[in-house]
Design a protein around this nucleic acid. Structure first.
Lengths: 244, 244
DNA sequence: CGGTAAATTGACCTGGGTCAATAAATGTGG
DNA sequence: CCACATTTATTGACCCAGGTCAATTTACCG
């Protein structure tokens, strides 16, 4: 079966040529399972493999000397993983499964071919890099300058967005798929305090919870609290060269 | 005069071909002054220009509704600025001068040519994007999981690194060029608390201060406190295609 | 059905924020 | 070069958001 999760992801933004699509499909030829909690890449390991996550949710994180963990990002199907090995010999972050996942590994060298033969794809890779960078800066702002309540609201909206249905419509009700400890490690809080903030949002009827499923009862209010900025609108890839 | 600050920056990593160098020089043909405090790009403005900072120090930041500011990064000569406009119509962050600066503006479309004609340069752009991304994640870790003292130590080391002499040797003594408020806005603290942490580092003889000049008296201890990771070593661009 | 991971909650503590006053540095016009 | 105005730096007093610790409870799993 010749599919590409990455292509599916960016399919909304651009019409790929058959040759481009073939190149992308080739990146996902191989596949490797990654169990919940299992580590795919360990920080500081030598590494020249990249991955595309094809199924499940994963995360990247850093561990500090005192044992605390900062989760850098959550990874969803179609996400590129381990791109820092384009620059650094050793992994800058650990990659692990949040739930059971499947990843498609490929060699760094595979990008050489793509960059050489498909200028538009390299432009597209730059574009997706920028989207990731902006997601990181959004979180940096949250950690640096917003309250615990805002950060918890923000991560709920972030997870909600990652669960957009195939038709692109976000669902107000979804399975979190994260423990409260993971949420805390992502937004710089303790699990205990995440729990208190969830309770508060619950008490205020902004969300409802039942067994790991969350329903956003008042998205407008949550968005306001969270300083939420939808990054789905206003995308413009007008500078891309023609596809080959 | 045909120079490229960007080329100078990456010159250590790679030998550019004459054609590659010409393409990069062309990006910096124009130049525009940017005074201390002046805004080059305002968040949310329509924007399809990119820049390379050629002189001085600038910064990018986001303002929140309550008036607080999160500085996302400091920019130094050779840094690319405003790349999020490769994806978003409206600027995702404000760019302003920290001191007096000079920037070289160029059109988004200029990248189309580079990507098409110089695969190795597009690969190099991806690589520099990754370096910036890693710098962002390092700061994310600092904000999410380290103490005020650690963050202040970290920003001192960051500024120190940005001041590396032409020969690549970092100097222990340098001019900060930032107010304590700017430092705080970068690492998620108030100016008051930045001051207290500087005093503490001073009292512990880890640094010395005189009129905006800082001397790192014990870099090893500072690095330990700051959870510092030097990102200058271990760089490997072995996957890059041949230059044209 | 026992056993472990995850969620909850209360009691208490502290790192960093807030507010306010002062001093030092820097800049400006004349 | 001076007098004044504006930032910036510094410090103290006090407060609170979020951390820590510990005890239960609930959910999940073979």
């Amino acid at each position: 079966m010749s599919t590409s999760c990455f292509a599916d992801r960016i399919g909304d933004l651009i019409d790929l040529t058959p040759a481009e699509r073939r190149s992308l499909v080739r990146l996902e030829e191989r596949s490797r399972p990654l169990k919940r909690g299992a580590v795919l890449v360990r920080e500081n390991d030598l590494q020249n493999e990249l991955f595309i996550l094809t199924r499940g949710t994963a995360m990247s994180y850093v561990l500090l000397d005192d044992g605390s963990r900062q989760i850098l990002r959550f990874l969803f199907p179609g996400d590129m993983v381990g791109f820092s090995s384009l620059v650094y010999q050793r992994a800058t972050e650990t990659i692990a499964g949040v739930g059971d996942c499947v990843v498609a590994p490929f060699e760094r060298g595979a990008l050489t071919g793509i960059v050489t033969e498909h200028p538009r794809l390299s432009a597209l890779l730059m574009a997706t890099n920028q989207m990731e960078r902006v997601a990181l800066t959004d979180r940096l702002v949250a950690l640096g300058r917003t309250s615990a309540k805002a950060r918890v609201a923000a991560i709920l909206l972030e997870i909600r967005d990652s669960r957009r249905a195939a038709d692109g419509a976000p669902e107000a009700s979804f399975v979190l798929g994260l423990t409260q400890e993971e949420m805390g490690d992502a937004v710089g809080l303790t699990a205990v305090h995440v729990n208190r903030m969830l309770r508060q949002l619950d008490d205020e009827r902004l969300i409802a919870r039942e067994n790991g499923r969350v329903t956003l009862l008042n998205e407008a209010a949550l968005a306001r609290i969270a300083n939420y900025i939808g990054r789905f609108n206003g995308i413009d890839l007008g500078w891309l060269p023609a596809g080959r």
